[in-house]
């Protein structure tokens, strides 16, 4: 008897949804690849320009400083920039093939990005292609055992966010916002979506803060029963430190991350 897997009916395992092509074996592989990671933290915000990449990189740097085994995956597939923020030369540091792809370490962080494969070329992709890249990268990347895998997501509530919700067992996002109305309203939509999907964020980070934590941000956290992790000050040194991980690690923004990093390490 031949079972055409594209026509399989009544088979409801989330990991093995049949497509027109047949079964996509990558989805099973993803569960296996991520099984030995204690904490998976997508860094998210639907609003662009609020500092997701900065927060993801600083979290990775500070966790590594504390001795945690950390991975960082740039999931901004069409415009990866985390390597630029950290100052990693993707032309010289490539993943190693060993029954999959082992990401190179940079600043003690296992770092994976599509930039290894496209360099500085533009990579314009439709949604279905983005989804394919995410599945491929998650299926072939060998992280081994990590305490934490951070993911730097692009803005929006599109394929990357939906893949996080679909493919990860228990993601614990860090949500980044600024105190302005547009960002807060955007983040509220994200918190609602996460709540609907039973995803519990580690907390909210306020970026580009002008002083103490903004009351509107705190109110939003209270409304959605999400922890407020901390406020990163507006910091001119961040711009001047781009591409230099050591210097980035000494900025006031980095110190603010350091102040709440133990809160996150407790989750391992």
């Amino acid at each position: 008897m031949t079972l055409k897997l594209s026509e399989a009916e009544g088979f409801i395992l989330k990991a093995l949804k049949p497509t027109e092509e047949g079964f996509d074996p990558r989805v099973t592989a993803i569960q296996r690849r991520l099984a030995s990671i204690k904490l998976i933290t997508p860094v998210m915000s639907p609003k662009g320009g609020v500092g997701k990449t900065l927060v993801a990189c600083l979290l990775a740097l500070k966790m590594a400083d504390k001795g945690a085994k950390v991975g960082l995956l740039d999931l901004d597939i069409t415009n990866p920039t985390a390597h630029m923020m950290l100052g990693m030369n993707v032309a010289e540091n490539k993943p190693i093939e060993d029954k999959g792809v082992v990401p190179p370490k940079f600043q003690r962080i296992s770092f994976m990005t599509i930039a290894y494969y496209v360099g500085e070329e533009p990579l314009p992709l439709r949604g279905a292609d983005v989804d394919n890249v995410i599945k491929e990268v998650l299926a072939v990347t060998i992280w081994n055992s990590l305490d934490s895998l951070l993911m730097d997501l692009p803005p929006g509530l599109s394929d990357e966010t939906l893949d996080i919700l679909e493919l990860l067992e228990k993601p614990r996002p860090v949500v980044v916002t600024t105190a302005d109305l547009l960002s807060l309203k955007s983040v509220e939509k994200l918190l609602k979506l996460l709540d609907e999907n039973g995803v519990k964020p580690l907390g909210v980070v306020e970026n580009m803060s002008r002083g103490d934590a903004d009351t509107k941000v705190l109110e939003l956290c209270k409304q959605y029963s999400v922890k407020f992790l901390g406020a990163l000050p507006f910091d001119h040194d961040v711009g001047a430190s781009l591409g230099n991980a050591e210097r980035l690690s000494r900025t006031k923004a980095a110190q603010a991350v350091e102040a709440f990093i133990d809160e996150i390490l407790k989750e391992f």
């Binding site: 897997l5 399989a8 088979f11 395992l13 990991a15 093995l16 079964f23 074996p25 990558r26 989805v27 099973t28 592989a29 296996r32 093939e97 060993d98 029954k99 999959g100 792809v101 299926a139 072939v140 060998i142």
Partner: peptide, 23 residues
């Protein structure tokens, strides 16, 4: 190229998962 091993693992795992769930 040894990336094939990752794909092979994914295929075997998927078939095993599917077949065992179908008895």
């Amino acid at each position: 190229m040894v990336h094939e091993w990752a794909l092979a693992q994914a295929i075997v795992d998927s078939v095993e998962e599917y077949a065992s769930s179908e008895g």
